[in-house]
Each structure stands twice: as C-alpha cells, then as structure tokens.
Amino acid sequence: MSVVFIHATVTLDGFLAGPRGEVDWMFDFPSAPQDQDVVDRVCANIGAVVGGANPGRTIEDGEVPYGGMVKAPVYLMSHTPAAPVERDGITYTFVVDDLASAVETAKEAAGERWVSVLGGKVSRQCLELGLVDEIHLDVVPVLLGEGISLFGGLGRRIDLDRLETSAFASETHLRFRVQGQRNRDAASTSTSSLPA
C-alpha cells in the first residue's frame, strides 16, 4: 500500500521559504555524505508527487519538484484547468480543486511506492483531510524570523509518533507517523525502515 508523506526542508522556525519565496538559505550549510544518503533513500522510494503551483511558474520557470531528479508523475493542484505537460520524462497533471482525488490518483500511479506531498498549503490541507500517513522533515540550523510556513494556520492539533531521527553535519532528519490515520497499521508495516 502506498504511503502518503509530507516531505520538506525547513528552517528551525518552521519556514519552507523566505517571505518572497526565496530558498537560498537551504544551501549555506555543510553536509555530510550521510545527509545525502537520507534524502537519496527517500527519493528512491517516491512513486508520485502531489503539490501546488501553476503551469507557468512550476514548469517553464524550472521550479520542478526535486529539481527533476525524481522521475515520477506529478499532480499539481490548480484553480483552472490545464492540459497535462510532459517535460524531461516527467508528466505534470493539473488537478482542479479536488485534493483528495489528486492524492488518490497519485497513490494509484505510485503502486507500492510512496506519494510525496510538497508545499505548505497542500500539506496542511492533506493533514486536515486525513490523507497523510507520515511527515519527513530535513531541518537546517537557521531562524529566518519570517517567511512561508509549513504548518502555520493548520488550526488543530495532530499527534505524531517519532519513527526516526538522525543528524550529521548540519541538517537534522526527522520522520514521524501521523497518529490515528486509517492506514496507520499498513504504513507501519510497509515503512518500518527506509530501503538501503
């Protein structure tokens, strides 16, 4: 069964990006090979991606999920219909205003692999709808003070079980299971450890 997980690099104060969407702060820290190993193992298990963006900014401006290194179908939430786009071996399908349908379609496409949820608004909505099995965070040691929040405005408490924690050069890698989800037992069985 496919596991739906929120995947994000965040600052210690919980921001995905600076106030104008800038992410240059992600690259100012030393990393160890083990940091990349953690990211590579997660990326190798992704079978589909769900995010939020518009056709022009996401694809034509080069803001593609995972920089295009994850070759999996991408389902992007939109308020206006748009034809699917194929670029560099990745198909981008635009889903109008039906996040639950986008996640279900992504799960079907992913098969036994995982569905990665990207972006603050889409992540919060997926949590509110009970669609998320796990949360994977790569935390970098910086406080931005302001910016685009991953969980700000969620509006309710969601309890988590810690599955894994690791830290190497600078980043801290955190993995949690969302408590009380319908797929909890299946997620626990199928993702008890990341693939080597």
Rank of each mutant, 00 (worst) to 15 (best):
F94I: 00
D35A: 07
G145I: 10
D159G: 12
Y92I: 08
E171D: 06
G147D: 04
L131R: 00
V70P: 00
F29M: 12
A32K: 00
S31P: 00
R184Q: 08
S193D: 13
P55T: 00
F151A: 08
A53Y: 13
S101Y: 15
R156H: 06
G56D: 00
L174M: 09
I135P: 00
R177G: 08
R156A: 09
V39M: 02
F27N: 00
D98F: 11
Q181K: 05
H7L: 13
H79S: 09
D88P: 05
F176H: 04
M1F: 06
V122K: 03
P195D: 15
V70G: 10
G180H: 00
F5C: 06
R182T: 09
R157C: 07
R87S: 11
R184F: 12
A100T: 15
I6C: 03
G130Y: 01
A100E: 13
V117A: 03
L150S: 07
I135C: 00
P55S: 09
S192M: 14
E104L: 12
D24Q: 12
D185V: 04
L143E: 04
L137S: 01
T165F: 15
T93M: 13
D40T: 09
M26Q: 11
S123T: 13
V49I: 15
R157G: 07
S188H: 10
D13F: 10
E134G: 02
T58M: 14
W25F: 06
L118H: 14
E86M: 07
S101A: 13
V103T: 05
R157E: 04
G145V: 01
V23S: 15
V70W: 10
R157D: 05
Q125D: 06
V39H: 00
V39T: 08
G21W: 10
R177Q: 07
F176G: 03
A100K: 11
S2I: 13
F168I: 02
A167N: 12
T11K: 04
L160Y: 08
D88N: 12
Q179Y: 07
P55V: 02
V96S: 08
G147E: 06
S190R: 14
V74E: 01
E128A: 11
P81G: 01
A186V: 11
A187S: 03
L118F: 09
V139N: 01
P73F: 15
H173D: 02
D37Y: 04
V115Q: 03
Y66Q: 02
D159K: 10
F176C: 00
S101D: 10
D133Q: 07
D98V: 03
S101H: 14
V3L: 15
I148N: 09
G56T: 03
G111H: 14
D159A: 12
V50C: 02
A109D: 14
F176E: 02
R162C: 06
V4P: 01
L118P: 08
V10H: 07
G180C: 10
Q34H: 07
P65C: 05
